[in-house]
Design a binder for these strands. Structure first.
Length: 461
RNA sequence: GUGGGCGUAGCUCAGUCGGUUAGAGCGCAGGUUUGUGGUACCUGAGGUCGCGGGUUCAAUUCCCGUCGCCCACCCCA
C-alpha cells in the first residue's frame, strides 16, 4: 500500500447513502420537535477565532481544540519566534461546541435578536480527542438554547424538548440527571474544602456510579489532596446516590437539611424544585432525577445542570445547563442563558445496536429499464411521465445491458418496482410493471402507469 | 497524554512452531437462462501478508522501529 490511504482521517467517518439517509431522517425529527417549542435555526461558521474558543472550556478543553495554522507571512513570522507554541502558530480553531459560538452571536447581534432568543442548531463540532467507542473527532451536536431569561421555565422546556425527541425516536431507556452548580458549591464549602480543589473534586465525585464509593474516597484523598475528615463530611452531605425519579422529594428534603442554611444551597434547592414542578406533566417529568453527584466538566455552567444517561452506554448521551456568565465573556452586557446538547451520534449508535433501524425506505420507487441504446428517448420519456406522477424514478443508464442485469441492479438497491418499455410494449401502448417484492408483473396502459404504481407503493394507502 | 490488542483479497477473518504455486466465506465479473432480479450450481478475476530496517541459506512468520485501526484510562456528546 504505497498509495495514499483511502480511509477517512482518524476519528472522522464517511456515511454511505443508507446511513446518510437514516441520519437525515433523525435530524429532521429533531428539528421538527425543536421547532414545535418555538426554537429558530442558527448557522455559524465551522471555524472561530482561536481567542473566541480559548479559555471557555477549561484546560482540558483548550488541549482538545483543533487549531488551524496561520498562513503565509503570518506563519513565517510566527515560526521565527524563539520557540513558538501551538497558540503562536494558529489563529483559528474548529468549533468545539455550539454554545460558545451562540454566546458570541448574542454578544455581536444583541440589537437584532428578540428579547428571548430561542435557537436550535444541528451541526458538526470537532475535538482532538483520541477516538473510542461512541467517541469521534467530528460529531454532530443538536443544541437548543434560550438566551435572556433566568426563569426555570427555560430549564423545564428545554428538558421537555429533548425528552420528546428521545421518546419519539423510540429510545426508551434513559434518565435525565439533574443537579445545580451552586448546590455543589454549597456542599464543598460546607465540607471545608479549599476552593482551588473544587473542580478536581467534582470530577471525582461524578464517577461514583462508575467506580464505586471506595474508589471515590481513595481518589479524593490521594489524587485530589482532600483530608479524610473533609471527605467524610462531603460524602455524608451528598448521601446515597438516587436512581429513581420517585426519590426526588426525599433527596431535596435531605439536601435542604445539609446545606439549606447556606445561600448557594437555598437558591439551588429553590430552583431545582421549580424545574421539577414546571417539568411535571410533560415528557421530561418522569425522567428527571435529582442527583447531587452530577458535576459536568465544562467550565461555563453556573446554575442547574443536566446529563442524559443510559445503562447501555458508559458516557453521557447529552448534557446541558445554565450558563449565565458566558455571554458576559464577550461583551459588557451579560445575558443569562440555558441550553442543552443531544449527543445524537451516541443515540444513533445505541439505536443501531438495539436493532431499531429496520424497514429502511428504498432510495427510489421504480426503475425504468432501457431496452437498447436506440430506445433511450422512449425510456427517458417514460421516466419523465412517472416523475410527473410524483414517483421517484431511476433510469437504467446503459442500454446495452441485459434485462437480468437491469433487474439485478433494481433488486440490489431495494427498489419496489421495475417498469419495462420495450418494442412490444410501445406497440401495444402499455408498460410492463413488475413488483419485485411479490414477483407479479402486469401490463398497464401507458397513460395510467404512474398512478397505478403510486397506488401500490409500500407504506402508502 | 497513558496502558492493552490488532494490521494477510474490496469486506470479515483463517494460516505459517521460518521453507517452494498464501486460503475460506461474503462481495465482484462471466456462465447455466438471447425479455426478468432475489434462491441453486459452475467458472473466473483479485494479495509486493501495513511500511522501513535487522537476524537468516531462506521472513508473511522471529526481532527492532514506524504508521494506522480498535479498546480502556483521562475527559466528554
Amino acid at each position: 500500500m504505497s498509495q495514499v490511504s483511502t480511509k477517512p482521517a482518524s476519528g472522522m467517518r464517511d456515511f454511505l447513502p443508507a446511513e446518510a439517509a437514516r441520519r437525515r431522517r433523525v435530524f429532521a425529527l429533531i428539528e421538527e420537535v425543536y421547532q414545535s417549542y418555538g426554537f429558530e435555526p442558527l448557522e455559524t461558521p465551522t471555524m472561530e477565532r482561536l481567542d473566541t474558543l480559548l479559555g471557555k472550556y477549561g484546560d482540558e478543553g483548550d488541549q482538545l481544540l483543533f487549531k488551524v495554522m496561520k498562513r503565509a507571512q503570518k506563519l513565517e513570522r510566527a515560526l521565527n519566534r524563539e520557540s513558538p507554541g501551538e497558540t503562536d502558530l494558529a489563529d483559528l480553531g474548529l468549533r468545539y461546541d455550539l454554545t460558545v459560538p451562540l454566546a458570541r452571536i448574542v454578544a455581536q447581534y444583541q440589537n437584532d435578536l428578540p428579547r428571548y432568543f430561542k435557537r436550535y442548531q444541528i451541526a458538526p463540532v470537532w475535538r482532538a480527542d483520541r477516538p473510542q467507542k461512541g467517541r469521534y473527532r467530528e460529531f454532530v451536536q443538536c443544541d437548543v438554547d434560550v438566551v435572556g431569561s433566568t426563569s426555570m421555565t427555560v430549564e423545564a422546556e428545554v428538558a421537555s424538548a429533548l425528552s420528546e425527541v428521545l421518546d419519539r425516536l423510540g429510545f426508551g431507556e434513559y434518565r435525565i440527571h439533574l443537579n445545580h452548580r451552586r448546590l455543589l458549591s454549597a456542599m464543598l464549602e460546607a465540607s471545608g474544602i479549599a476552593e482551588a480543589k473544587w473542580s478536581g473534586v467534582l470530577i471525582t465525585i461524578d464517577k461514583l456510579d462508575k467506580v464505586g464509593r471506595n474508589e471515590v474516597i481513595r481518589e479524593l484523598q490521594e489524587e485530589r489532596g482532600v483530608g479524610r475528615e473533609a471527605v467524610d463530611r462531603l460524602l455524608s452531605l451528598l448521601g446515597a446516590q438516587p436512581t429513581l425519579a420517585e426519590e426526588n422529594q426525599g433527596t431535596l428534603d435531605r439536601l435542604r437539611e445539609a446545606v439549606g442554611h447556606l445561600e448557594d444551597g437555598q437558591v439551588a434547592l429553590k430552583e431545582l424544585t421549580e424545574v421539577l414542578r414546571f417539568a411535571d406533566g410533560g415528557p421530561a417529568g418522569p425522567r428527571l432525577i435529582v442527583d447531587p453527584y452530577l458535576a459536568r466538566g465544562l467550565a461555563y455552567y453556573t446554575g442547574p445542570i443536566f446529563e442524559i444517561r443510559s445503562d447501555e452506554f458508559s458516557g453521557s448521551i447529552g448534557g446541558g445547563g445554565r450558563y449565565d456568565e458566558l455571554v458576559g465573556m464577550f461583551t459588557k452586557q451579560s445575558l443569562p442563558a440555558c441550553g442543552f446538547s443531544l449527543g445524537i451520534e451516541r443515540i444513533l449508535m445505541l439505536m443501531e445496536e438495539a436493532g431499531k433501524f429496520t424497514d429502511e425506505p428504498a432510495p427510489a420507487d421504480v426503475l425504468v429499464t432501457l431496452w437498447d441504446p436506440d430506445f433511450t428517448p422512449n425510456s427517458l420519456a417514460l421516466a419523465r411521465e412517472l416523475r410527473a406522477a410524483g414517483l421517484r424514478v431511476d433510469l437504467y443508464p446503459d442500454g446495452g445491458d441485459k434485462m437480468g442485469k437491469q433487474f439485478g441492479y433494481a433488486d440490489e438497491r431495494g427498489l419496489p418496482f421495475v417498469a419495462i418499455l420495450a418494442p412490444r410494449e410501445l406497440e401495444d401502448g402499455v408498460v410492463a410493471v413488475k413488483n419485485l417484492k411479490t414477483g407479479d408483473q402486469e401490463k398497464v396502459p401507458r397513460g395510467e402507469v404512474g398512478r397505478w404504481i403510486v397506488e401500490r407503493l409500500p407504506g402508502r394507502s
